[in-house]
Design a protein around this nucleic acid. Sequence first.
DNA 1: CTTATTTTCTCTAGATCGTAGAGAAAGTCG
DNA 2: CGACTTTCTCTACGATCTAGAGAAAATAAG
Lengths: 111, 111
Amino acid sequence: MDVITRTEEMLLLVVCRLQADAFGLRIREEVEALTGKRYSVGGVYVPLDRLVKKGFLTTEDGHPTEERLGRPRRRYVITAAGVRVLREARSMQEALWNLLPAPLERKLGLT
Amino acid sequence: MDVITRTEEMLLLVVCRLQADAFGLRIREEVEALTGKRYSVGGVYVPLDRLVKKGFLTTEDGHPTEERLGRPRRRYVITAAGVRVLREARSMQEALWNLLPAPLERKLGLT
DNA sequence: CTTATTTTCTCTAGATCGTAGAGAAAGTCG
DNA sequence: CGACTTTCTCTACGATCTAGAGAAAATAAG
């Protein structure tokens, strides 16, 4: 049972959401919008490529037929293992928060 | 907006739950039960003490009147800042998963 | 064809966080 | 006091995150 980090979970989910648009710099925009935090270029590619190495993402080179300026894009696509680990992360998260009995949760002003 | 890591979130929640029993080795038991993973002694104390340094936890020395063998226990207690950051972590988590439109979520077999 | 321009990605060094366990510390018991 | 028990301190190493300079790969211009 190998739970991923928060960053990894976020990147996997953003890749799922963006689908055909899931390439590095677009992913960065999404992540910045989501967190309200600035991310450097490496701040996205380094963890993304780690996810590839771990088998949770794969890549496809963009078609040069796109009639677009600049270097071709590299799309990230989630794998079956990636989906599996996302499910695990989510159920882990739920188990975590279910630790707290409801009265305590209210007392702390969580919920 | 300074989001904590998964380990930090887990430790804060376990401390909340254990209340008067929230000392190092007991926390370790709880974390092992929760994750099904083995944790070394340092594997709990290092992140716990980091949380203290960040102001999300404080400590209280255990009473020696406890009539118990061995070195006194050090209790961890969550601070107001700790509760705040837990709330942030949770709402961040929800925002993350709300990225996925429901049809896509079903298609991937998440939920 | 060669050079400029645009867009995206690669690389790697430093900071932060997680993992691991040996041994010190602080009590009680004999 | 010395042995025993329980809990904590310390620190080194590996993994992950952060940051940005510059390379790469395409099209556009001369």
